[in-house]
């Protein structure tokens, strides 16, 4: 039953890990919304105003989802939102490759070293897989013995 034991811990570790990633990503952008707006604008997808609206709201969605994952509250909904966000990020990143835009992904720290779209895409694929796993697989409380039928 070794394999089973490992699985029991894999999910909470993944949940907290992914949660911390999004908490970190959210906080960095919340601290510098204007720089993030510039990063969003560099994608040349949205009109001027909407870059700022995204910069004002998206980091908070990331932050709240990260917080929910870390605390283990409403995990399915939070990971569902992360799935949707990651799909949108990946579409945006893919569009920069197609359009030949050489920009920083603006995923975490704003400014500094440039992260290429390919690296960001690879990273997002991992986050997406983790979020899908969390959304689909139910967390079972780590207890021994039989639990009365809940569902």
């Amino acid at each position: 039953m070794m394999k089973h034991e490992m699985w029991r811990y894999a999910r909470p570790i993944l949940r907290v890990g992914l949660g911390l990633v999004f908490l970190y990503a959210g906080i960095l952008k919340i601290l510098d919304p204007v720089a993030f707006a510039a990063s969003v604008a560099a994608y040349k997808i949205l009109p001027y105003n909407l870059n700022y609206l995204v910069a004002a709201t998206l980091p908070w969605v990331e932050f709240v989802c990260g917080l929910l994952l870390v605390t283990g509250y409403r995990v399915r909904a939070a990971s569902g939102i992360i799935i949707a966000m990651n799909l949108a990020f990946m579409a945006a990143l893919a569009s920069t490759i197609v359009r030949g835009l050489d920009i920083d992904c603006g995923c975490f720290r704003q400014g500094g070293e440039k992260t290429s779209a390919w690296v960001a895409l690879a990273r997002d694929t991992i986050f997406l897989a983790a979020a899908i796993f969390l959304c689909v697989k139910h967390e079972k409380p780590i207890v021994t013995g039989k639990i009365p039928a809940w569902e």
Partner: peptide, 29 residues
Amino acid sequence: RVFLEMGVIVLIASVTGMLWNHKMLIGVW
């Protein structure tokens, strides 16, 4: 229910973000 929760979470987070950044948004608009 999950979709409803997702909607509520996004709404709460977005409104918080807009309030937090209201000065920037008003300036932009």
